[in-house]
Design a protein around this nucleic acid. Structure first.
Lengths: 123, 123
DNA sequence: GGGTTATATCGAAAAACGTCAATATAGTTT
DNA sequence: AAACTATATTGACGTTTTTCGATATAACCC
């Protein structure tokens, strides 16, 4: 009779080990430092209030006063100040004091990239 | 007599109020829902281990077994499993079980975007 | 069936985060 | 100088996140 008992039958599903990798188990990858820097930047955008703040700045064609930013939220002044600090330290925004007021803008360079990031989900 | 005592002298630096906004104090902006969704996605990338995992998947041209992912880190198995879950729930990665092993890939669609995100900082 | 293996889930402890009230700082006005 | 204003910082408290050991689940092999 023709072969209908092809000997594939007792081949274990994946040769008893998960598909071996080509490169030696720890090939080229992101450095720990780069991963940490990236994570810091992403984490800074990982809060709705900070996303909103960045969006406000991205939509504005001029600098925006902290006192105006505060109007958008029903949060205490220290809380807004804290979120602005996180965004500043992550390099997303820049502050300039003039008189009693402090004006924020998106940090130069990252502007286009940031607008793209914001568009990356709602699309 | 000609004006040489122009009355600009006692104009306060910024007219006693910070530069007024053009739109009515709460113009068009990101909805709370969109801000929350964006923040959730960014937060999922807000940890170095998860950035590394995404990078590993982004560099690989094939699916990667959990057992291989674990090799990259000196963290417990439950911890890696937890980070994979966060990435899964954020929609960045996909899992497929085959035999005893589970293989992860970047979620379809977002692949190019994700690679761009990863490139967004080290550049 | 019983034994083994890979991954996921649970529960707890430590660390990080978000928020506010209180206070400090720095500028402005009188 | 004193009073006032906008923003930042400090300190405390509740919540969430990260991590692990222990256990559960599910698939394989004998």
């Amino acid at each position: 009779m023709p072969s209908d008992h092809t000997d594939q039958i007792d081949i274990p599903i994946e040769a008893a080990t998960c598909q071996p990798r080509l490169d030696g188990a720890a090939g080229q990858r992101l450095s720990d430092e780069d991963a940490a820097r990236l994570a810091t930047r992403f984490k800074a955008l990982g809060h709705p209030v900070r996303v909103q703040i960045v969006d406000i700045l991205a939509r504005s064609d001029r600098e925006v006063c902290v006192c105006d930013i505060e109007q958008y939220f029903s949060l205490s002044q220290p809380t807004i100040s804290h979120h602005l600090k996180v965004l500043r330290e992550a390099g997303y925004v820049q502050a300039e004091q003039r008189g009693l007021w402090v004006y924020y803008t998106l940090a130069p360079g990252g502007g286009a990239e940031l607008r793209a990031l914001l568009r990356s989900l709602p699309a």
